[in-house]
Amino acid sequence: MISVSDLRKGLKIEIDGEPYEVVDFQFVKPGKGQALYRCKIRNLVSGGTIDKTYRAADKIQKPDMHERDLTYSYADGDNFVFMDENYEQMLLGHEVIGEQKAFLVEEIEVKVLFHNNRPIEITLPNFIERTIVETEPGARGDTATNVNKSAKVQGGYEIAVPLFVNEGDTVRIDTRTGKYADRVSKGG
């Protein structure tokens, strides 16, 4: 059990068997009334946010959660096949991977969060490297960094890159923002 005085942003709690994360919380005390903690909590499975108010004496359920490092292998229809350190296969569904599938490349190591042994969320490395497969050629000698153009990387994901980036270049993408970070190497 978690006591209300331990509430803080980022804390993971459980309500009716569902895992939630505290995204915001505030001490409130209506005139002459009891101390209350008004929270915004995010359902870690559905992503939906709800309001929840706790009294100082309330007890909150602690979720059974753990994290494992898994290596991505390949996509099989709507499922994504991962491998643990003993080469045991594990299937993660589309609802867990979501938009992050754009950054899944073979052999990439991800952290998978489990709630009661059910995978609910993956965390990618902060940066991944991809090769540009399609973009307009940049003007010769143009090294401006504040002007962008669209580029497609292997796997089909589209990002905005500076004009000096060309087809065949390898770039780093920040997976937390989904944006271009820098160029790692120039293509042949």
Binding site: P30, G33, Q34, L36, R38, T53, R55
Partner: peptide
Amino acid sequence: DADRFDLDLVDCVE
């Protein structure tokens, strides 16, 4: 109901 009063004041009335 003192307990419910404070909670509802913060959650519903205010």
